[in-house]
Nucleic acid binder design. Structure first.
Lengths: 123, 123
DNA sequence: CGGTATCCCTTCTGATACTG
DNA sequence: CAGTATCAGAAGGGATACCG
């Protein structure tokens, strides 16, 4: 019996998949999600927690994450105006993946370093 | 007994982690790794398999993946000159993660779409 | 075949200043 | 407090031409 269709679970990488990953695994999102997983935070709390981020980038990151349903933006009250950001249920599922990614980088970093040295010294 | 150190498995996100993820989960790497997981491929085979990629980007992607130990570059012979790219053992561990990422995007895409619609129509 | 080198243009990022 | 607006510099990616 010939196997015409091999049992690959080959998940097709469409532009949609790429776009979502880009919007959600970018430079700042990991840090922001990590913070929000520990506790809901205010805008300036996040700024202080991630000192190198600029206002602009933080705003952009939060809007993007909010738009994709990863965080909830809650306007707590007015005078002077307080906004709280919370991780959503969807965002928590993402956090599990991020943990897996970070676990992978931690585990493979030594071997990656060796590969880089081999590559660089040979070139 | 006070818990001075909470039991968070909070993996710290260092610049090193970010850099590695950036180099390995970028726009083209997922496609390239996916192809190489199915079978070793020559340079122009990859170009044909990923039609929208340019020579420049494919070269850069392959060099980066090779430098990080994710793929092996094998010069098969000379005249006219053949080069084969293969996924490495390290690259295979990455592929598992990529599959998890793609599975996540597939699973959550519907809810993400709904979140986007809510966000966009409300704005 | 399997690249490298160059130009160019768009995108991303950061710094700074201002607002409800 | 929680942003928006504007601008300049750096970086990324495509198109084209050429090389071992």
């Amino acid at each position: 019996m010939p196997e015409t269709t091999p049992p690959q679970p080959t998940t097709q990488i469409t532009a949609q998949h790429r776009e979502l990953l880009d919007q959600v695994l970018d430079k700042w999102s990991l840090q922001v999600l990590d913070r929000l997983c520990e506790s809901p935070s205010r805008f300036n709390e996040l700024r202080r927690a991630i000192p190198v981020i600029t206002q602009k980038s933080l705003t952009a990151t939060l809007r993007r994450l909010e738009r994709n349903g990863m965080v909830d933006r809650v306007v707590v009250n007015t005078r002077p105006l307080a906004v709280e950001y919370r991780i959503s249920a969807l965002g928590k599922t993402l956090q599990d993946l991020i943990d897996a990614l970070l676990g992978w980088t931690t585990a493979t970093m030594p071997e990656v370093e060796r590969a880089r040295e081999r590559f660089d010294e040979h070139a």
